[in-house]
């Protein structure tokens, strides 16, 4: 059997990269954000468009999952009504930690143009939100930029620690 002798000091260096656990974990987390399909209204269509042919979300490692248990990002795309509020909380509670929430569009941010009896005036009354995307409806580019900002936020966080409880309103 042939014995291979590799001189690590000369042949391209050690096959080892030195880094911190934080960086490795966050590198993995930030580049495989699986999003829960939470299309509620019009913004949900733009969310689908960002996942479809032209805007192609898979490039970011963002894949839409239909189950809260497999996803770590909830993109609340659309108007949250009072009747639905209960369910968004249920689904949010089912997501494993660490988890993030993007509130997409004016309706999800503040109730938007629907200043009525039936609309929750911002999803942050029910679940904590990490990122607010303005627009009615935001373009797919906005959502992509939002996901990139979220990646940045993830990379800046400590990987090992449990997430701090996020502030609700």
């Amino acid at each position: 059997m042939a014995q291979h002798q590799v001189n690590y000091t000369q042949d391209g260096g050690l096959p080892v990269a030195l880094t911190t656990i934080d960086k490795v974990v966050n590198w993995g987390r930030s580049n495989s954000i699986w999003a829960l399909t939470y299309g509620l209204a019009c913004c949900g269509i733009e969310m689908m468009a960002s996942g479809a042919s032209r805007y192609d979300f898979d490039r970011y490692g963002t894949i839409f999952r239909a189950s809260p248990r497999q996803s770590e990002l909830m993109i609340v795309a659309g108007t949250l009504t009072k009747k639905h509020a209960e369910f968004i909380k249920r689904l949010y509670d089912q997501m494993p930690e660490p988890r993030w929430v993007i509130s997409m569009g004016s309706c999800a941010n503040t109730g938007g143009m629907f200043n009525t009896y039936a609309t929750v005036q911002g999803v942050d009354r029910v679940i904590p939100v990490d990122l607010y995307l303005p627009g009615c409806a935001p373009r797919p580019e906005t959502l992509q930029y939002g996901v990139m900002l979220l990646q940045k936020k993830i990379r800046a966080s400590k990987a090992g620690k449990a997430q701090k409880p996020k502030r609700l309103m």
Partner: peptide, 11 residues
């Protein structure tokens, strides 16, 4: 139904 009732007629 009604999970997206936003009260458009009222608006």
């Amino acid at each position: 139904v009604g999970y997206l009732h936003r009260g458009m007629e009222k608006m």
